[in-house]
Amino acid sequence: MLAQLFNFRTWIAVIAVAIVTGTVFYSNFLAKKIAVEEGQKVNVWVQALKTRAETTEKSALDLTNIITSENKDIPIIETDENDKPSGMVLNLDSALVKKDSHYVYKKLAEFKKQHKPITIEISTDPLIINKYYYGDSDLLKQVRYYPIVQLIIVALFIIITLYAITTRNTSTQNQVWAGMAKETAHQLGTPISSLEGWVEMLKESEVSNSISVEMEKDVNRLKLISDRFGKIGSAPKLEDYNITEQVEKMVAYIKRRATDKVNFVVEAPPSKVITKISAPLFDWVIENLLKNALDAMEGKGNIHIKIRERPGNIVIDVTDNGRGISKQNISKVFKPGFTTKKRGWGLGLSLSKRIIEQYHKGQLYVKSSEPNKGTTFRIVLNT
């Protein structure tokens, strides 16, 4: 799948580069051809202007008038031999010519960079020479800018195509994850129901009551896991809960499974912190973050959970003083399958991010992390 996707993207890029390259070369060819033709037109225009000044024949004058009047797109500035504008300008913005005294000089400097002037000798005694500087027509400018416009269009086409492919693949991946979660919940349902029956029978028998109590705890745990997986892929029902109570409940659960060398601290406002959540899924997120912190500390250290209520949202920071996350891995920790542990599938943080951001419309991200000093994960929930 990845190889096919890579090949498809490569072919798109190759075709796009070929199109743009061909367009650039052809546009340059056209631009040079138009530039030569415009130079010839200006030269004919200048010669017609000279002929009109030297002749009195009506037919010649009529011809030169036709030639000089046909130039409606090539801008021209007439100067003396010292490059001082004589006042004759053609195809420039007349409003700017009148308004800005420096406008003609600016255009003259621009024309000097584009083409060499065409000169004519007005008289020999005294020697008078006029120069005619000309610039590019609008057509020539459009031909030169066309490859840039096409490059932008092709780039947008590639971006939209790749975005569509990525979105489609992400959607397919999400459907696969949701399907796997629901199938897991379905498969767990049958043995859980059976275990519940056996627990009830044990309670009625002469077997030690402590055994049935412990088995009931494990069965309830399995039911909770099944419920969590069953909610993946469908819109969960959000209800008002006290966030502090939910966090403290999960801390108590994890604390029983941690060593005495791990110190848990929950810092929360004195009043209730209420917002709408799916309790089973939210508990799963806190459990994943706490387990992740325990793994990072390797059995000893401090875990600090700070809950704050701000205008419009609730912020929960889960901080440990474990081994931290390297800079190159911070952007990868939420990707499915990424893990630095020897065991595990690398799905805990990925599922947690999905639960918070897709189902609760909040945020889950790495607030800060430093190797060998610890990590802080931040949850932001809207109120």
Rank of each mutant, 00 (worst) to 15 (best):
S86D: 11
M215S: 05
F8C: 00
N71Y: 08
N209P: 01
K353P: 02
K373T: 09
V318Q: 01
K182A: 14
E357T: 13
I274H: 04
K107I: 11
K113G: 08
Q328G: 04
V251L: 08
S278E: 07
R323V: 13
T23F: 10
T51Q: 12
N174S: 12
K106A: 14
E248M: 12
I19T: 02
P280F: 09
I159W: 07
D83L: 10
Y134R: 00
N372P: 11
T10G: 02
Y253N: 01
F282S: 01
Y132R: 04
Q246M: 14
F334R: 00
A3M: 12
M215L: 15
K255Y: 01
E216T: 12
V266T: 15
R52F: 13
M180P: 00
I303Q: 01
I148R: 04
T68E: 15
E183W: 02
S326G: 03
N43S: 14
S226L: 03
V318K: 01
S278K: 06
A181C: 13
A185H: 10
A53M: 09
T376D: 12
Y103N: 10
I254L: 09
V219W: 05
P191A: 03
F282L: 00
Y105K: 15
D317P: 02
Y105C: 03
R256F: 06
S27G: 13
S59H: 12
N174W: 09
G301D: 02
I192K: 08
V333D: 10
V273K: 05
Q358I: 12
A185P: 08
R144F: 07
Q328V: 09
V149C: 05
N43V: 07
V199M: 10
H115F: 11
E309C: 05
I128W: 05
N263C: 08
T340W: 06
F29N: 13
Y365I: 11
T170L: 12
R343Q: 14
F25K: 11
I129W: 03
S271I: 12
Q187V: 10
